[in-house]
Structure formats: C-alpha cells, structure tokens
Simulated scan of single mutants.
Amino acid sequence: MLVDKDAIRALADILTETGLTEIEISEADSRIRVARNVSVVQAAAPAPAAAAPAAPAAPAPVAAPVDPAKHPGMVPSPMVGVAYLTPDPASPPFAVEGQPVAAGQTIMLIEAMKTFNQIKAPRAGTLTKFLVESGQPVEFGEALAIIE
C-alpha cells in the first residue's frame, strides 16, 4: 500500500487550523485517518472500529472538544502575567459565570511587573465561562473567558 504523505500533511494542517482532534477520508479501497491528542483508550477503540457501528460514535467525541481559542466570544490575554478574578482575596469576583456583562466592564485583573491591569469585556453579553483560575499564570493571547 502506498502512503500519500501529501494527503496526510494536508489533513494534519486541517486539524491544526480547525482545532479538530481527528479527521478521516476514504476513497475507493483506501482510507486515511489522522488524529492528535488521542489517549490510549481512544486509540484502542479504532482497532475494532473497522465495523460500521463504531463510525457513528467517532464524530461525537470530535464535536465535543471545542477549542476556546477559536470561539468567537473568546477574550484573549493582552499580556503575560497572573490572572486574578477578584480585586483582593476578601472581595467578590468582578464578574460571575452565567451573568451578563457590559462592554467595558472589568472582568478580571492581570498582574504584570507588579502592576495590576484591568481586563475589560470587549462586548456586552453573558459571561459563559472563565477559562483561567484566580492566581493562574497566563500567556499573551491565551483565552481568558468566553462572552456570548
């Protein structure tokens, strides 16, 4: 069997661009499946997956993990630092998951070089999820929260 390296590279590029964890194409009597971040349990499942019953089960796990960085409501970190969800340990959080936020409302702080920088909601909506915990280091561009 000849291996089409260009097709495998193209599928790997699609995985990277879309955030999918696996992709498969079939033509005539050949089939190419490319997967990433697959645990041993998932890798064991495709071996008996040659039968049709496993094929419908494969798309469900692929659709479940959504890359937060690709979400249209993602709030990115503008800097490297440490994220804080409250102004101080004894105070309530700036925002709460599931609650509406206004455009420009402070949703967290990022401490960088002993300076606390307010991270404001870029749009009005509902804060559906914080993707960081208070006291967690963050990188530039890292997804901090999702506002829908």
Rank of each mutant, 00 (worst) to 15 (best):
Ala58Leu: 07
Pro59His: 11
Pro59Val: 05
Pro59Ala: 13
Ala60His: 10
Pro61Asn: 07
Val62His: 09
Val62Met: 11
Val62Ile: 13
Val62Ala: 15
Val62Arg: 12
Val62Glu: 14
Ala63Tyr: 03
Ala63Phe: 07
Pro65Asn: 08
Val66Asn: 08
Val66Thr: 12
Asp67Cys: 09
Asp67Tyr: 05
Pro68Arg: 00
Ala69Tyr: 13
Ala69Ser: 15
Lys70Tyr: 11
His71Gly: 11
His71Arg: 12
His71Leu: 15
His71Cys: 14
Pro72Asn: 01
Pro72Ala: 03
Pro72Trp: 01
Pro72Glu: 01
Met74Val: 13
Met74His: 03
Met74Trp: 07
Pro76Arg: 14
Pro76Asp: 14
Ser77Trp: 01
Ser77Gly: 07
Met79Tyr: 13
Val80Gln: 11
Val80Glu: 12
Val80Asp: 09
Val80Leu: 13
Gly81Glu: 12
Gly81Met: 11
Val82Cys: 08
Val82Thr: 10
Val82Gly: 05
Tyr84Pro: 06
Tyr84Phe: 13
Leu85Asp: 06
Thr86His: 15
Thr86Gly: 14
Thr86Pro: 10
Pro87Tyr: 14
Asp88Tyr: 13
Pro89Gln: 09
Pro89Glu: 09
Pro89Val: 15
Pro89Asn: 12
Ala90Met: 15
Ala90Trp: 15
Ala90Lys: 15
Ala90Val: 15
Ser91Val: 07
Ser91Arg: 02
Ser91Cys: 09
Pro92His: 15
Phe94Ala: 08
Phe94Arg: 06
Phe94Leu: 08
Phe94Asn: 06
Phe94Thr: 06
Ala95His: 02
Glu97His: 00
Gln99Ala: 13
Pro100Thr: 04
Pro100Ile: 05
Pro100Phe: 04
Pro100Lys: 06
Val101Gln: 05
Ala103Ser: 05
Ala103His: 05
Gln105Leu: 07
Gln105Phe: 10
Gln105Pro: 02
Ile107Lys: 00
Ile107Arg: 00
Met108Asn: 01
Leu109Lys: 04
Glu111Phe: 14
Glu111Ser: 12
Glu111Lys: 14
Met113Pro: 06
Lys114Gln: 08
Lys114Gly: 09
Thr115Glu: 13
Phe116Asp: 05
Phe116Leu: 08
Gln118Val: 10
Gln118Phe: 10
Gln118Glu: 13
Ile119His: 02
Ile119Met: 04
Ile119Leu: 07
Lys120Trp: 03
Lys120Ile: 11
Pro122His: 09
Arg123Asp: 06
Ala124Arg: 09
Gly125Asn: 08
Gly125Gln: 04
Lys129Ile: 00
Phe130Arg: 01
Phe130Thr: 02
Leu131Trp: 08
Leu131Ile: 11
Val132Gly: 02
Val132Tyr: 00
Val132Leu: 01
Val132Glu: 00
Val132Ala: 03
Val132Cys: 07
Ser134Lys: 04
Ser134Arg: 02
Gly135Tyr: 00
Gly135Lys: 01
Gln136Cys: 11
Pro137Leu: 01
Pro137Tyr: 00
Val138Tyr: 03
Glu139Asp: 14
Phe140Ile: 13
Gly141Ala: 12
Gly141Asn: 05
Gly141Pro: 06
Glu142Thr: 09
Glu142Ser: 14
Ala143Glu: 01
Ala143Ile: 02
Ala143Leu: 06
Ala145Asp: 05
Ala145Arg: 03
Ala145Thr: 06
